[in-house]
Amino acid sequence: MPELRRVLVFAKRTSYDRYIRQQGVPRVKELLARGDVTVARMVRADEHHHRTVEEVQRALEAVGARVTLRYRDRLEAFDAFDLVVTVGGDGTLLWASHGVGDTPMLGVNSAPHDSVGFLCGTRMGEVLPHIEAIAKGTAPRVKLARMQVSVEGEVVHRRVLNDVLFANPHPAHTSRYLLSFRGMLEEQKSSGLWISTGAGSTAAIRSAGGRLLSLRSRLLQFVVREPYTPDGAPYSLPRGLVHPGERLEIFNKMRECRLYVDGPRISLPVELGQRVTFCTSDEPLTVMGVSTRAVSERQRHTTVDGEDVSDAGDDVRPAGSGSGSGSGSRRSPLPSR
């Protein structure tokens, strides 16, 4: 680890910051004044967050680092820094990671009672020892694989850390597309398609029935969300694991379609007939402070039904007799491009 000369602290804006300090939303003020249950944690989370931002700045100054503070509403390339420290939760780390190439990152969970911080290496009240370990070069680190996304052969994002949702922008609409993987092409209707990295396998894709992958895994995973099969025949490609060097392709059949990258803030349009390609990125992300215990615990859960899916495995299981060519098959010849 290089000497910590220039460090970026990238902090989120709390709900209280946005709704009260910045916008002064009357409805939120009213709810807070009467102690409504829907905003009961807002003040506490705000206090904890700003206290943590100050704690992080003090810890970095204690090891001689020059600190630059920026907030989550501003994203740019961050590779001029020796370290990027995010203050918030996993969402803040995900957002900042899009501006980070080779620079290591440390996530600090500023409100551990109110936010998810699985990828955060430390938390409020425990920052200084972790900063000191990073400065000494003794802090644990893990390289996380990221995903590259292309539309019609042009890369639109190569730093996806968690997941992408391919779907109609209207939640009540059916998503229509052709899914191509390992020589199979299948027409599908569903609520959309989740594609995730190993790091993202604990998130939405797991709720949709996906597998838990090793934190160090370089595999991608896809799961069809709420498949629509009125004739009762299962899809041949309901889910699968995409190895490094492989590609997953989707051909859009919708007039309106979006790619939601690492959450709702990055939303990319896909036109009717366009091809979207997903593969493992050649830009992994280095995350500091994630303990070996957390990695080992994650690894312990990556053997499913006797199959190790940490770095290998195949979850593409054709319907019917195993050939996927029964009466319910929706497979088609691969399109020429």
Rank of each mutant, 00 (worst) to 15 (best):
F10G: 11
L31S: 05
T38K: 03
A40M: 12
A45C: 12
A45Q: 11
H48D: 04
H49L: 08
H50V: 02
H50M: 01
V53R: 01
V56K: 08
V63L: 06
A65R: 06
L69A: 03
R74F: 13
W95T: 14
A96N: 02
S97Q: 09
H98G: 11
G99C: 10
D102H: 13
T103F: 09
G107M: 05
D114Q: 15
G117T: 12
L119S: 13
T122A: 15
L128A: 15
L128M: 15
I134T: 08
K136C: 04
V142Y: 05
M147W: 14
L165P: 01
N168M: 00
H173G: 04
R176C: 14
E186R: 00
R206N: 09
R211E: 05
L213A: 10
L215P: 07
R218S: 08
L219A: 04
P230H: 07
P234G: 00
P238T: 08
G240N: 00
L241T: 00
I250R: 01
I250V: 15
K253W: 01
C257F: 10
P269I: 05
V270H: 00
Q274M: 03
V276G: 06
T277N: 03
T277W: 01
T280Q: 13
V287I: 14
S291T: 12
R298L: 00
Q299D: 15
Q299T: 12
R300I: 07
H301A: 11
E307Q: 10
D311G: 03
D314E: 04
D314K: 03
R317L: 13
G326E: 12
G328F: 02
R331Y: 04
S332L: 11
S332V: 11
S336C: 11
